[in-house]
Amino acid sequence: MSSIQKVGVCGAGGTMGAGIAIVAARAGFEVVRQDLSAAALERSMRDTAGFFSKSVERGKMTAEARDAVLARITDTTALDGLAGCDLVIEAVFEELSVKQALLRALHPLLPEHAIIASNTSTLSITEIASGCGREDRVVGMHFCLPAQIMKLIEMSPGVNTAPEVFQAAWDWTLAAGQQPVRTQDKPGFILNALLVPFNNDAIRLVEAGVAAPPDIDAAIKTGLGYRMGPLELIDLIGLDTQIRLSEAFYPVTLDPRAAAPPLLRRMVAAGRLGRKSGRGFFDYGKPGMYGA
């Protein structure tokens, strides 16, 4: 049973923050959504209301339940709007200095018992917590995209995280209806540590002339039963994002598989970013969102 009642989400105007806030509110927690950008908050609140209305249409929840969930959410651009939260989950920009500054500013505002969780994909939890004043109460809580749909959360303690804090955060993820897995404060945790080099390897196969993208994807889908081939997935993630992920991991791990392949850089330079630009390893005809 989680003693956490009030949950703050920093960066709630963004993709992940908005999804995480939905998870918390849906599970019955009082939620404060915070973002520097009022416009982003407003937009994501509209999306959030739309998400719950769709749930009502699909018979997943009643209109009363939707109204109750929305009534549990408040929005703020001011950091001190988070005072009184038992748990604050940050999903702000993926920059160490931004996250460190945020945690330092949060510490004096929050009750002593409050836990801060980071949704970082590539940074170290220990480094994010460093110097914030409550290093023992910071945990890694890595949701998957889209957070409002995916159940998995990779949970990782930093070097200084107190075991009871990690446990309390773990219990909260269960109370929120999620599936936590325990991992370590290492680059990419489990998912990205396996996926980012694997995706680079698929690009290297194209580069080495082993096979064309449709053949590589067909081989993976038929041979292993994956729903999506790696090159289709990279097109969805964005080739520029794949470079950013590689650049986050390679200098830390020095794993040659994590280094961005030259073909990836050439394609990004040529404007082939994947689905969002209409063309990556496959041609989509026109730019668009996944599923569009």
Binding site: M150, K151, E154, V181, T183, L191, L224, Y226, M228
Partner: peptide, 10 residues
């Protein structure tokens, strides 16, 4: 479990 839930692998 991470690969099954996070990546949809069978």
């Amino acid at each position: 479990l991470t690969c099954r839930l996070g990546l949809g692998y069978p």
